[in-house]
Design a protein around this nucleic acid. Structure first.
Length: 572
RNA sequence: GCGCCCGUAGCUCAAUUGGAUAGAGCGUUAGCCUCCGGAGCUAAAGGUUGCAGGUUCAAAUCCUGCCGGGCGUACCA
């Protein structure tokens, strides 16, 4: 049951003569302030303006015409023409009781089931993952979970950088500077050392290394046996290291089709583009021009090599042929906005305009000095060490607060709390904005954090334990819901909102909409917790009703957090 | 130079895309353990939303111009 959609449908049906029903419906939203009720319809002013009528009169007419039963009665006209909706308590209690019986958390199958390809994480192999890789990985994973929760089909694709120029650098390093003993002990560490060595020499302006590395890349692409063998030898080690990180983060992929996978298709992509007059030769390269952007979109370099634009086009074609997706999301740094604008324009011209291509851009991570957090040797915060630090921090708090818990369990709890803190710190920000990397914020465990939500969950579990009841026994009892206290009502309204929140998060592609909701829910629970004794309620009926509200809150928090890729614990 | 993004409380960030008195967290201040977990709760202080105009019933949000920052800008991805 999506309450917002129900209200919108009702208001759409009551759209004033001459107004646009879909716009009128879209102006219905949760109330900004509790004193305005639970939901509000803001469309009357706009309609009145276009019809040159008095907005209050329009609002009064809509209030008379709209039928919100059984959810709510006649809306109240307020201010210049707002319509405030207050849900009936009887309806709320019935809905909460129904939600209690619903293992699907009120979520229903989508009207139009979509197939969504989500391209995320996509690191370059053979480079250690650092904090910069966290955003794409965590945001992409959460978006995938959001679409899945809504009943859509999701293809999670890790578009690995396993074929580009960085591999040429590694090959050059391998042939000139490798430490075989170090490689035998820890292949990935040695390969990344070689990469950094080559990379820093090139950055310092060493043209010899630059051209040598480029030549190695070219040989790899051309099928040189030695380089292909080395590539095949390195890849399993690189993948193993990446997978260890993904396993720890709880992130999985349906496919991992890296750049190398598309290599055999690239020549055909270019010739097809040329045949169709989309690409032309310019300054020795094969390029396509896109309106509004001066720089060309290069599909074949002057030296004959293909680059990532070519690969991305091949990927679009492959995905359409394989999954025929309705939507494809690219969870990639905002700095590549121009690239995607070009890519999408060329793809449309090429005949792939059916799929909704979206660059899910996120802001750059800045250092404490407010300058971009550059990946320079030495001062990079590796992802591994960030996670270890967060877990260690969580362990300290668990040790201090719950010494009675077994050490093994404390370790498990610390891992969940620590990872949750790091993920939530990233997910709770609007992904568009740049953000300042702040270690203490990443590790924070009070305020608007995953820990706060996990804590609310754990406190509820504690109540259930003390009361000798379980989620199942509460549900079996199917108690009547009583909403006499404002905090009880506040909880009821909120637990019913999950479906509409997820839909909003999916349409905006913003997980922070979900974190905001969960924080609001946990806050409402804390208020309830202070004001409404559960086990010591004044009657059995009230006790059972409150236990039900507790359990619904817990299940909503648990499910919501799981959609962010964050676990809960019963004790912490 | 051109293009894109951004500027909100002391700090870090929200604001359902034009809605009512701009909200949280941290920090500061004052309270709250005879009651289910104080990783908590209640309250206070803190703002000319960079500046100046404009659009309208209504602007942090839209348009123009400045100021300040970030990014991109022909063969890295």
């Amino acid at each position: 049951m999506n309450v917002l959609n129900r209200l919108r449908a009702a208001f759409a049906a009551a759209t004033p003569e001459g107004g646009d029903p879909s716009a009128f419906a879209a102006a219905v939203r949760p109330a900004g302030d509790p004193k305005f009720g639970d939901y509000q319809a803001n469309g009357c002013m706009a309609v009145a303006k276009s019809l040159k009528k008095n907005p209050r009169e329009v609002a009064v007419a809509v209030a008379e015409a709209v039928d919100l039963e059984p959810l709510a009665g006649k809306p109240e006209v307020a201010g210049p023409g707002f319509l405030n909706v207050r849900l009936h308590d009887e309806w709320l209690t019935a809905q909460v009781a129904e939600l209690l019986r619903d293992p699907a958390h009120g979520l229903t199958a989508p009207e139009a089931k979509k197939t969504v390809v989500i391209d995320f994480s996509s690191p370059n192999v053979a480079k250690p993952m650092h904090v910069g890789h966290l955003r794409s990985t965590v945001i992409g994973d959460s978006l995938a979970r959001i679409f899945e929760a809504l009943g859509h089909t999701v293809v999670r694709d890790n578009h690995l950088g396993d074929w580009g120029a960085q591999f040429g650098m590694i090959l050059w390093g391998w042939k000139n500077h490798r430490d075989q003993a170090a490689y035998d002990v820890d292949p990935v560490a040695e390969l990344s050392r070689l990469y950094r060595l080559a990379s820093s020499k090139i950055k310092e302006g060493d043209r010899d290394v630059e051209s040598a590395a480029r030549a190695e890349t070219a040989k790899l692409h051309a099928g040189d046996a030695e380089n292909r063998d080395l590539w095949a030898q390195f890849m399993p080690h690189c993948l193993k290291a990446l997978h260890a990180m993904y396993d720890r983060l709880g992130v999985r992929f349906d496919v991992e089709l890296g750049e190398s996978f598309y290599d055999p298709m690239l020549a055909d992509v270019v010739s097809d583009l040329e045949a169709k007059g989309i690409a032309e030769t310019s300054e020795g390269a094969v390029v396509a021009f896109v309106e509004g952007i001066k720089a060309p979109f290069i599909v074949r370099k002057r030296d004959g090599a293909f680059n990532y634009g070519t690969t991305d086009l091949a990927t679009i074609r492959y995905r359409e042929q394989t999954w025929d997706p309705d939507q494809a999301l690219y969870v990639v740094d905002a700095r590549q906005a121009d690239h995607f604008k070009q890519l999408f324009a060329v793809a449309r011209r090429w005949g792939y305009g059916k799929v909704d291509l979206q660059h899910v851009a996120f802001g750059t991570i800045m250092g404490a000095d407010r300058r971009p957090y550059k990946t320079r040797d030495g001062d990079v915060v590796g992802l591994e060490s960030l996670l270890d630090e967060a877990v260690a921090e969580a362990r300290k708090v668990v040790d201090a607060n719950s010494p009675d818990i077994e050490p093994d369990d404390r370790a498990r709890i610390a891992e969940i709390v620590g990872l949750g803190a790091v993920k939530y710190a990233d997910l709770s920000q609007n992904r568009i904005s740049d953000y300042v990397f702040d270690w203490s914020k990443m590790l924070a465990m009070n305020g608007n954090t995953a820990t706060y939500l996990q804590y609310a969950y754990a406190r509820i579990q504690s109540i259930l334990r003390k009361g000798g009841v379980s989620s199942e026994s509460i549900r079996d009892r199917a108690p009547a819901i009583l909403l006499s206290h404002p905090a009880e009502r506040g909880l009821a309204v909120r637990v019913l909102r999950l479906p509409e929140v997820l839909e909003l998060a999916a349409s905006e592609l913003k997980p922070n909409i979900l974190t905001d909701y969960l924080f609001d829910l946990a806050n409402a629970y804390s208020t309830f917790y202070e004001g409404c004794p559960v086990l010591k309620a004044e009657s059995d009926e009230r006790r059972d009703s409150r236990l039900a509200l507790c359990d619904l809150t817990a299940q909503t928090l648990k499910h919501g957090l799981s959609i962010l890729g964050i676990d809960v614990v019963d004790r912490m």
